[in-house]
Design a protein around this nucleic acid. Structure first.
Lengths: 122, 122
DNA sequence: TTTGATCGTTTACGCGTGTAAACATAAATC
DNA sequence: GATTTATGTTTACACGCGTAAACGATCAAA
């Protein structure tokens, strides 16, 4: 529903809002090689999709997210899991495990997570 | 690199190959509402992308995957993790945990997985 | 009050995708 | 041999996306 370039803009707003187009460009301009017009277009598409809102601030607008990051992240993740892993998390983890792509940190955090689930349950 | 509709065709071939265009359509035609031409186009795009190969069989072609499912799955998953979870698996699992979207089965499998990692290490 | 600077809005354009229709070709049948 | 049938190949077309340029409006400065 919201594209990759649009998501870059959203990430900026999720970190801190409200922000002007200029501020967004400043934060993102060097990583992406974007011109001002590009950011403007993306913001307008996000407005049309009701993913952000704009409030006037003098001569310019300040933009804020309407779509919550949680929600976006969940949609995108669920879509991937559905398409590739029968909709479940464990097979994805298994895949990365098989590919030896779990870092020590990952493993430690997963352990921690499962312990916490234990605690909750009891 | 390979699109969603193309991936549907690939899934058929990953399940079993080689297959003719007609067979692919038969397996996928009711789920997707595709015509024959659609499958043909997708196969040609996949050929162009070197994701499948074709061998003549009389008047028709039989198609087989060149791209391994593992590789495709890994690319797609890594891209998602990079964009949304700092490139790591644990935060994704944490997200689903927070959303109460881990099934009992998931949890059991994750436990199993971590145990196996223990075993290997020792 | 003209002119420049600063914003936002509109329009554009090429590319990939989803979805086929049209066309070509060769084999099978009449 | 002429026609139908079964494939594959070429072309098409609308839509979203990435990426802006062009245009317009408004405020500030001269």
């Amino acid at each position: 529903m919201i594209s990759e370039a649009e998501a870059v803009v959203m990430e900026v707003l999720w970190r801190s809002a409200p922000r002007s187009a200029e501020e967004i460009l400043a934060e993102v301009g060097h990583a992406q090689q974007w011109q001002e017009g590009t950011v403007k277009s993306l913001l307008n598409r996000l407005l049309k999709k009701k993913a952000v809102k704009a409030e006037r601030d003098g001569r310019r607008y300040l933009y804020s997210p309407l779509l919550a990051r949680e929600k976006y992240v969940h949609q995108a993740s669920k879509s991937l899991l559905d398409r590739l892993f029968e909709g479940r998390v464990a097979p994805l983890v298994a895949h990365f495990s098989e590919q030896r792509k779990l870092s020590k940190k990952d493993i430690a955090e997963l352990r921690q997570l499962l312990e916490e689930l234990d605690d909750e349950q009891s």
